[in-house]
């Protein structure tokens, strides 16, 4: 089994760069024999978080970067993603499963992250998200 890994980097506000980070973290998880379910959960969450940071936070600005700090250990994966945008209030997002919002094409990313992760916490006025997925987590709990 591979040794635990930590890395920190900054990427430009380009979607393809976000995808590379996503791939790197998922490969680290696979190298540490995380289950397909754990990797699925983290890949989905990373896609949402990096899209939020690059597109909605930094608005694809060439002058802004996204910071990624990743810690993959035997028991958990912790990723912190920060953008340089205006931030947002994660508590003010409408529930996308409610009838008045369910037909909207967007607005599901944060809800999915919160469902698939053991920890999904925003700080710095919504510019930073800290995501934790524990090995063999039972999440998500799927409603009937």
């Amino acid at each position: 089994m591979s040794s635990p890994t930590h890395f920190a980097l900054q990427i430009p506000s380009v979607m393809s760069e976000g995808l590379r980070v996503q791939e790197r973290i998922c490969e680290l998880m696979e190298a540490l024999s995380y289950t397909a379910r754990d990797v699925f959960a983290m890949r989905l969450s990373l896609e949402e978080a990096l899209t939020n940071a690059i597109r909605h936070g930094n608005k694809l600005s060439e002058e802004k970067v996204v910071s990624v700090d990743c810690d993959v250990t035997e028991n958990r994966v912790c990723v912190r993603i920060s953008d340089q945008g205006d931030g947002f209030d994660p508590f003010c997002l409408p529930d996308p499963t409610q009838p008045e919002f369910i037909e909207r094409p967007g607005g599901r990313g944060v809800m999915l992250m919160q469902t698939y992760l053991n920890q999904c916490e925003y700080s710095d006025s919504g510019r930073t998200v800290t995501m934790v997925r524990e090995r063999n987590s039972p999440l998500p709990i799927v409603p009937e």
């Binding site: 890949r43 989905l44 896609e47 949402e48 037909e103 607005g107 599901r108 999915l112």
Partner: peptide, 17 residues
């Protein structure tokens, strides 16, 4: 299909509409 994001869900909703 093994993975899809919320942005892909959005396209399916629009297609259905």
């Amino acid at each position: 299909v093994e993975y899809l994001s919320s942005a892909a869900l959005g396209k399916l909703i629009t297609l259905n509409q």
